[in-house]
């Protein structure tokens, strides 16, 4: 976390997105530092996916989105892809490419790696625990396995900023926990990680900070434990928050989180 000092990896200022004549995202500002895991929260239709797609430079936006000091909309597709890795909610890939081919797509923006002795593709597959799947066809995998392949593809690009749109939605409880542990690890090793999350308890447990959206605008932001509090949850989601209720899970080799 040493280099997280001055310049945040991502600075968004007054981001606006229009769909037709409707303003679906209004003046959202946020920043995500290197070494930080930032959760984007909000009910269905709050504009979370729209926000992260704009931040990833995949939607035309108003306002400003800077990645390491450069406006995203001025970057060429390749330059942008080298700085930002984006993991969509679900891939549109329905073709029988091999898993290793899909993960290798994450290196496309880097061009052919001449004289590169490292194996970022193999390393990425190992990180998500799918090295034995390398030669399998993408279409034969389960939705959860496909999601992990997409994560590996994003990791293979080795970009400083990772943006993920609900990466754990199709995953079972174990793979969700592993994914969050992995994302935490990436943040701790200096990457900036921005994740759209549905589960508030996951956000409180794994994210350093959180932004809470409501109807396309920023409701509140701050440390995740402060953002996810009964007042804001009731206002945004219309539900009551009960502390220490429900089930809690952890990976077997890790101690449960402190109460």
């Amino acid at each position: 976390m040493a280099e997280s000092a001055e310049l945040p990896a991502l600075v968004a200022t007054d981001v606006r997105v229009r769909r037709g004549r409707t303003l679906v995202l209004r003046d959202v500002s946020l920043r995500c530092r290197a070494g930080e895991l930032l959760a984007v929260l909000g009910p269905n239709g709050a504009g979370k996916s729209t926000l992260v797609r704009a931040l990833a430079g995949l939607l035309p936006y108003g306002g400003s989105v800077e990645v390491a000091g450069t406006e995203v909309s001025t970057l060429s597709p390749r330059e942008r892809a080298r700085r930002i890795a984006f993991v969509p909610q679900r891939s549109g890939l329905r073709s029988a490419l091999r898993v290793e081919e899909v993960v290798a797509q994450g290196r496309y923006a880097h061009g052919p790696g001449v004289g590169d002795s490292r194996d970022p593709i193999g390393a990425a597959l190992e990180t998500v625990g799918l090295q034995s799947f390398a030669r399998r066809s993408f279409t034969t995998l389960s939705v959860g396995e496909q999601q992990r392949v997409l994560l590996a593809r994003a990791l293979a690009g080795e970009s400083e900023l990772l943006i993920l749109d609900e990466p754990t939605a199709p995953l079972d409880v174990r793979h969700s926990l592993e994914t969050f542990a992995l994302l935490r690890g990436l943040a701790e090793r200096g990457r900036a990680v921005l994740v759209v999350m549905h589960e508030l308890d996951d956000a409180r447990r794994f994210a350093d900070r959180a932004v809470l959206l409501r109807d396309g605008a920023l409701e509140t932001s701050g440390p995740s434990s402060e953002v996810i509090e009964p007042g804001a949850v009731r206002k945004v989601y219309g539900v009551d928050l009960h502390e220490h209720a429900g089930l809690s899970f952890s990976l077997p080799h890790q101690a449960p989180e402190e109460e």
């Binding site: 797609r53 995949l58 597709p77 892809a81 080298r82 549109g92 797509q105 496309y108 923006a109 690009g157």
Partner: peptide, 15 residues
């Protein structure tokens, strides 16, 4: 090959 995943994904990968 990257376009097989759809335009947005291909764009996010640098196409």
């Amino acid at each position: 090959d990257l376009l097989l995943s759809g335009e947005e994904e291909a764009e996010s990968l640098g196409v």
